[in-house]
Design a protein around this nucleic acid. Sequence first.
DNA 1: CCCAATACTAGAACAGGTTGCAATTCTCGT
DNA 2: ACGAGAATTGCAACCTGTTCTAGTATTGGG
Lengths: 212, 212
Amino acid sequence: MAERAPRTPAHPRPVVSLAEVEAGSPAQRDRRRRILEATLALATKGGFDAVQMRAVAERAGVALGTLYRYFPSKVHLLVAGLALELGRVLERIERAPVAGDTAADRVLLVLHRNTVALQRDPHLTEAMTRAFMFADTSVAEEVRQVSRLTERMLTHAMGVEEASEEDKDIARVIGDVWLSNLVAWVTHRASAEDVENRLALTVRLLLSARDR
Amino acid sequence: MAERAPRTPAHPRPVVSLAEVEAGSPAQRDRRRRILEATLALATKGGFDAVQMRAVAERAGVALGTLYRYFPSKVHLLVAGLALELGRVLERIERAPVAGDTAADRVLLVLHRNTVALQRDPHLTEAMTRAFMFADTSVAEEVRQVSRLTERMLTHAMGVEEASEEDKDIARVIGDVWLSNLVAWVTHRASAEDVENRLALTVRLLLSARDR
DNA sequence: CCCAATACTAGAACAGGTTGCAATTCTCGT
DNA sequence: ACGAGAATTGCAACCTGTTCTAGTATTGGG
């Protein structure tokens, strides 16, 4: 990719800050929705490379400059898409307790379901994981949000009422391993089975103590 | 308690295959060396963005087309640089047993030393970790080499004579967590202290069982 | 030593992310 | 309803990774 040397920020701050997705006029919310929709559609069809800024803008029916006003870079755009999707998933998961007798079982169940879902849309998964991993400091806030969502998903699966610091740490470690394995799967360095096995091992080692 | 001391192999294997180092005429080997040298110098000075293909070519004294003949993309180039550096580190580490009474102690020591070294060259670290994470399937072979080097480094630190599959799995999990935390540090989402703490937790949870 | 194959060079050209800008359209407070 | 300021548009331009070409230098097998 051709990333230009950093200079003075070109466009004013994005209209919609991460904290208040609901902000802006209805027209603006709709533009934002169309942009993310276009992004996810293109990513699903052809992965990271297919998410071309001109193509996203055209498909969303906005000018290129407007796209950049809403999302200051391609990586911001994709990570925002990831956060959106992850938020939907989390909402569904938190609606009910996870089945399973032990924390390890429940975490593995949640990981398994998500992994299977991600593997069903390999291009989308590739686009989002690569953007997430490539994100630099300017995307830190969005990346942090994704991390928080993942952490919540895993602590919820662990089934702790109020997550202690150590609970959160363990969730983070599991999340790190999950992500690394997704990357390995996306780049064909690990099979779906490898991913499941490694997650199972990690969870067993990290969580088995709490169930006895 | 204190388990068997880790042992240095009598004749350490070279970290890169001879075929690779030995390939080509002396002039070609020298060009390759100059290219990687230029890459690391630019990365050290300005990170991922400063490693510009035209700049690397000029600094190495080769034409742009030649640079692409040696390394088919910027990511290949940087990951090759990473493998080179990691190979040097591994060579030094494997020369002697690692100090420490338990596998956990030794692994933490090795991780600590490397983490400190990486944090001394933040731009270089940023360039290499981002390239590594952004690598797509065409770089799989180089990425795999880096993974193997990391795995060897960690199993060596664990001090096992002959790494079992589970040993390797554990090493891989630790490597994954290490990498994730480096990325988090590079992007200012985690402090140096955070990284050390999380690695300590991970190693404790994954390795404490083997030391009792 | 000679020649064909291969490698190298300089530079143009192309692709896609990002920025700049002038003109137009919206929005909103009064 | 009105006018100022903000948002949007349509394009052109710019930057850097990557590819291509035509010409020149090296090299290795005979």
